[in-house]
Write a protein that binds this DNA or RNA. Structure first.
Length: 685
RNA sequence: GGCGAGGUAGCUCAGUUGGUUAGAGCGCAGGAUUCAUAACCCUGAGGUGGGGAGUUCGACCCUCCCUCUCGCUACCA
């Protein structure tokens, strides 16, 4: 299939925090490289993104900070937009889902599916927290499980007996927001029947076996498990209003409205064009079969972009579906997962101020080390090495020595090429091969490989200079030197084009040094880009070395974050619970018992089945301690047992009581046992 | 436990519809050189391909078992 135009999307970042290197490496950088490459080739391409500004977490953040949700998203929309701009992520439009055009688009989209009777409708009784003034998401309700008696079952399921619940089944429900008892109110919600749509989705996925293994595999995994209908509306006051009568106080599910954000961003783009806009309209980019839709995302978004959004588009009927979804894996930082809440991250806005003018260094690092096929680790030491040993030593150095020689010998005027020898011809031939090599890699979303080829061109240049040693023959054979430098300058000009998608800031700098305009992909493979007598510009270094100190500062920053975390963890000792009477306490019967037998419960990771002599009897207790104790080594161990806890079945085994465990701040468990042996059945009080 | 993705040189990764001596970059060692930000260039050392079994004339690549990492999921009163 030959496409006439492309629309490339990058995942809409959620507007409740800043952006870090993981975002850049996983999604925005590859998308930007790809788009810049397509543009350079003269393709018609539109690159859209925007802030995802709806959903519960934003309302929670607003409440916590005592501001409105709009204030929250305004703040982060600006912050994220600035970070993208700082790194040269070249969106044609960076829109937002709180915009009027998005509200309208998402609303219309929903209405269309509604009118086509795609949704299934369900009136359910949902719990409403009167004090908090809102309906409660299932997981914000806890209560007693009707099946096993667990008092802390969640509204959607009981983690004790594994049964799937609805909040209305809970006995003694309470809101985790206010602690109050919520009241039942009728509410109607609309579901996308993915179960019924599975065959169509399967056909779609099966026609894209060419997708990256991680993407295709993940889709298959979901399909194998069988899709389930998903509610596309929520009882919430922050979001796109459900455009249906009787849907007051409801908004579209954030995952319904977010991908539509790509469409509304496209509209937003065309709305902002004044006179001579890009040809066509937003519809050309979303409804024409000759448009190629590509979603760049991180691996956490695969199901939404490969299954739910296509299902929505299919149901709508007018839209094209994604031709590819090149999802990346995750980036770790210094051996640990990036964590926003623990501040274990390199924030883009911090980097921009700490490493002014070095955007391309991070772009290079994150592309060379991108988590394309598996999770990868970012270390500052590696960052420094990549800069010093590759950007400075290979690329920057080649440009520098070429330009310095040109200045020294010819006062900056490009010398004419003379008679070519065999080696010259070989090098020229090699130069011509690079554009195709790089585009072949980029076409397959193999960015690391493409970048490696770019560096190989610089290596070729270095080798050419080293082999020909113009500095040795500048006196004896001036004509030869002219040819050598002419060719070196042609390599430099080719580099300025090929590096642009990856290193746009450096490309600009190099063009200025060469005193040429930024050329396009079609100009590559030519070896006459630098014409004789052309005067080059002012020469400076393309990259500077990064000294140890700069890296040490960054590592220290992370260590500090870690220390802060440890301190705040210590403070996280939970507050004392409300007072109870002695009478309440005396209901609890805890005894000292001895473990007689212990074995793993099959098909579980954490469960041990224990036989315990409680002094009263010998009973079976199932406990989630397999991760901390080897069954063979705890025979004879004395433990504290809550003996009058109502029995319940766990994995088909009736557990008659509970072993009391101490838990440290790392969530590691240990037995609570007497410090010297006591008789089985002794009271703990 | 289930599903998915991975486990290839010190580090980061390629590769093979199964076929002779398994590749690259960085790091390391030695050499050469001075135009260049002690950079470039050349040479070299380094891998029982997570472990085991099987299929095959032959497996890093296929099958099975085990193991470790990551994600989803189950389970952890």
């Amino acid at each position: 299939m030959i496409f006439k135009r492309h629309i490339v999307t990058a995942a809409l970042p959620y507007a409740n925090g800043g952006l870090h290197i993981g975002h850049l490496a996983g999604c925005y950088l590859p998308a930007d490289i790809y788009v810049r490459y397509l543009r350079s080739k003269g393709e018609d391409v539109l690159f859209v993104c925007g802030s995802d500004e709806h959903g519960v977490p934003i309302t929670i953040k607003a409440k916590k900070e005592g501001i409105t949700p709009l204030q929250v998203v305004d703040k982060y929309h600006k912050l994220m937009g600035d970070s993208f701009e700082g790194f040269g992520i070249s969106f044609d439009i960076y829109s937002r889902t709180s915009s009027a055009v998005h509200e309208q688009t998402a609303s219309d989209f929903f209405k269309t599916l509604y009118d086509k009777k795609i949704f299934t409708e369900e009136i359910t009784q949902q719990y409403f927290d009167v004090k908090a003034g809102q309906f409660l998401a299932d997981r914000y309700i806890v209560g007693t499980c009707p099946k096993c008696g667990n008092e802390n079952a969640y509204g959607d399921q009981c983690e004790n007996c594994g049964s799937t619940l609805s909040p209305t089944e809970l006995i003694n429900p309470r809101s985790t927001l206010s602690g109050e008892k919520p009241v039942l109110r009728d509410t109607r919600n609309w579901f996308l029947p993915l179960d019924k749509m599975q065959p169509g989705i399967e056909t779609y996925i099966e026609s894209h076996k060419d997708w990256k293994a991680n993407v295709y595999g993940q889709c298959k995994s979901w399909l194998n498990q069988g899709l389930q209908a998903r509610a596309m509306t929520r009882d919430l006051d922050w979001g796109v209003k459900v455009p249906v009568q009787g849907a007051e106080g409801k908004v579209l599910y954030v995952w319904f409205d977010a991908p539509i954000g790509y469409i509304s961003a496209t509209k937003d783009y065309f709305n902002r064009q004044t006179v001579k806009a890009r040809k066509g309209s937003w519809e050309l980019y979303w409804k024409d079969k000759e448009t190629r839709l590509v979603h760049f995302i991180g691996k956490d978004n695969i199901v939404f972009h490969c299954i739910i959004f296509p299902a929505m588009l299919m149901a709508h009927g007018d839209y094209i579906l994604a031709d590819n979804v090149p999802a990346n894996e995750f980036l770790n930082l210094e051996g640990n997962k990036i964590s926003t809440s623990r501040n274990w991250a390199v924030w883009l806005h911090d980097y921009l101020s700490d490493f002014e003018g070095k955007q391309d260094v991070l772009r290079y690092m994150l592309c060379a080390n991108a988590p394309e096929t598996k999770d990868n680790d970012f270390t500052w030491k590696d960052f420094q090495a990549r800069n010093n040993n590759e950007l400075v030593a290979i690329l920057g150095n080649f440009i520098n020595r070429t330009l310095v020689l040109t200045n020294n010998y010819y006062s900056g005027k490009v010398p004419a090429v003379g008679e070519l020898n065999e080696q010259d011809r070989l090098v020229l031939e090699e130069i011509r091969k690079f554009p195709k090599r790089i585009s072949d890699s980029l076409d397959q979303f193999r960015f690391r490989e493409a970048l490696g080829e770019l560096m190989n061109l610089a290596r070729l240049g270095n080798k050419y200079l080293a082999d020909n040693e113009p500095w040795k023959i500048s006196e004896s054979n001036p004509e030869r030197v002219k040819t050598i430098l002419n060719i070196s300058l042609q390599v430099s000009a080719n580099l300025s084009i090929l590096m642009e998608p990856f290193l746009p800031f450096s490309a600009k700098k190099l063009c200025d040094m060469l005193n040429i305009d930024q050329l396009k992909w079609n100009d590559t493979a030519r070896t006459d880009l630098m014409t004789a007598d052309h005067q080059i510009g002012k020469v400076s270094l393309l990259y500077d070395k990064i000294e140890d100190e700069a890296v040490v500062v960054q590592i220290k920053k992370l260590e500090d974050a870690k220390k802060m975390n440890e301190l705040s963890t210590l403070k996280q000792v939970s507050a004392a619970k409300a007072d109870i009477s002695f009478e309440d306490f005396s209901k609890i019967d805890i005894r000292i018992g001895t473990i007689l037998e212990a074995e793993r419960v099959p098909k579980t990771d954490k469960l041990l089945k224990l036989k315990i002599d409680t002094g009263i009897d010998v009973r079976t207790v199932v406990s989630g301690i397999a991760g901390f104790y080897d069954p063979a080594k705890i025979i004879g161990q004395q433990v504290s047992v809550l003996v009058n806890l109502a029995p319940r079945k766990i994995k088909g085994i009736e557990s008659q009581g509970m072993i009391l465990m101490g838990e440290n701040l790392n969530a590691e468990l240990c037995f609570v046992a007497p410090v010297k042996p006591v008789e089985n059945g002794s009271n703990v009080s």
